[in-house]
Computed example of a mutant assay.
Amino acid sequence: MNKFAIIALWVMVQGCAQSPTQESKLKQLGKFPSSLKEVSGMETTQDGNLWVIEDSGNKDHIYKVNHKAEVLYSLKIDHAKNVDWEELTTDSLGNLYIGDFGNNANERNDLVIYKVDSLQLTKKEPNAKKIAFAYPEQKDFPPKTDSLYFDTEGMIHWQGQLYIFTKNRTRPYSGKTLVYRVPDKEGSYVAEFLGALFLCEDQNHCSVTSADISPDGTTIALLSYGKLFLLNSTALSNIPETKVRTIELHQMTQIESVCFLDNKTVMIADEQNRFGGRKLYKFQLD
């Protein structure tokens, strides 16, 4: 084959290789300021903007940002300490829930979800109420390596309950997230175990880093590194029989946050790492 034929063939192959993929639908909207390097949770506000938080080592603040990832203002949350804030969710009344349940080493026995009433969000330093909880299956702090299920980064609110999806750190890796629920009211609870949901076998891409539920209450999105898992909300009544749809995002950055903008659109944010990040994206579901 002559040189020109080889070049023509190479061009044709490259054209085929660059056909649209799921990755092409992940649209970058903006980049967070350098002061927000570790966005760990995100939720849509009632006025269409976004609340975001950062995880351990950062301030006890929530930040309102627009769709360009620009900070509009921040609020210090009173009666709340950022041990390891990992997730945000809201209910239909606009009450905000902050998941302080990051637990990388599975050592914590002070897990809490902070509830900030919607009216408090109009104040300079909103007051938070505590929803403390414990996992009934965890007996040791930390447990053995094959039982490291009790780090958490995913939470949704649905029908008066908070649903928690744990982040699997087991060795060997089992591919499961444990699903729990607790009431959305101030108090101290033993979380109710609903079942284990198998996602996939790759620890680098199948551990839950965030969750949200669509505004119509029908679709749950679970985010992991490079993948988005979708399931119907009715599955919460029968976790073992749940069918999961997997979407490949082909994203190498540390994507840590997801929330629904509408029933068919999700917003995704990543933390800064060696692959880049600190960006806000929009993803359109089929």
Rank of each mutant, 00 (worst) to 15 (best):
S118W: 07
R108G: 04
V116N: 06
K115H: 08
D84K: 01
E87G: 05
N103K: 04
Y114L: 08
L121N: 13
I131P: 00
N106S: 09
K129I: 10
F101G: 02
N109K: 14
K115N: 06
L96P: 09
Q138D: 04
K123P: 15
K115Q: 11
S92G: 07
G99A: 14
N127P: 13
D140E: 10
V112C: 03
L93D: 15
K129L: 13
N104K: 07
D117W: 03
K130G: 03
K123F: 08
N103I: 03
V116I: 14
Q138F: 12
N127I: 01
K124M: 10
F101K: 00
D140Q: 11
F101R: 01
D84W: 01
E137P: 00
L88E: 08
A80I: 07
G99V: 11
L93V: 10
F141N: 00
L111N: 01
D78I: 01
H79T: 07
D110N: 09
I113C: 00
Y97T: 14
E107S: 02
T90G: 08
Y114C: 09
K124I: 15
L121Y: 09
K81C: 04
V83W: 02
L111I: 15
K81F: 03
D110H: 01
K76D: 14
D91Y: 05
I98Q: 01
L121K: 08
R108M: 12
N103P: 00
K124S: 12
Q120W: 07
K81L: 05
E137A: 05
N106A: 12
Y114F: 15
D110R: 01
I77S: 01
L88I: 14
K115W: 06
W85Y: 12
W85E: 11
A132M: 06
A128S: 15
W85Q: 13
L111H: 02
N104R: 10
Y97R: 03
Y135M: 11
N82E: 09
L121D: 13
E86Y: 03
A80K: 07
P142Q: 09
Y135C: 04
G94H: 08
K115F: 12
V116E: 04
G102Y: 06
P143K: 11
N106G: 03
L93M: 12
L121Q: 10
G99D: 03
D140V: 15
V112H: 00
L93G: 13
G99Q: 04
E125I: 05
E107P: 00
A132F: 13
E87P: 02
A134H: 13
D91S: 07
E137C: 00
E125K: 07
K139E: 06
N109Q: 13
N95D: 15
E125V: 08
G99M: 05
E87S: 14
E86F: 04
V83Q: 05
G102F: 03
T145M: 04
L93P: 12
L93F: 09
D110L: 02
F101V: 12
G94I: 11
I131W: 02
G102W: 04
N109C: 09
A134K: 12
F133T: 00
A132N: 08
H79D: 14
K123I: 15
P143H: 10
G94W: 07
P143D: 09
Y114A: 06
V112I: 14
K139W: 11
N103G: 08
I113R: 00
I98C: 04
R108V: 06
L119M: 04
F133G: 03
L96Q: 07
I77F: 00
L93A: 13
A105E: 10
A128Y: 03
Y97E: 06
Y114I: 12
A105L: 13
S118L: 05
L93I: 09
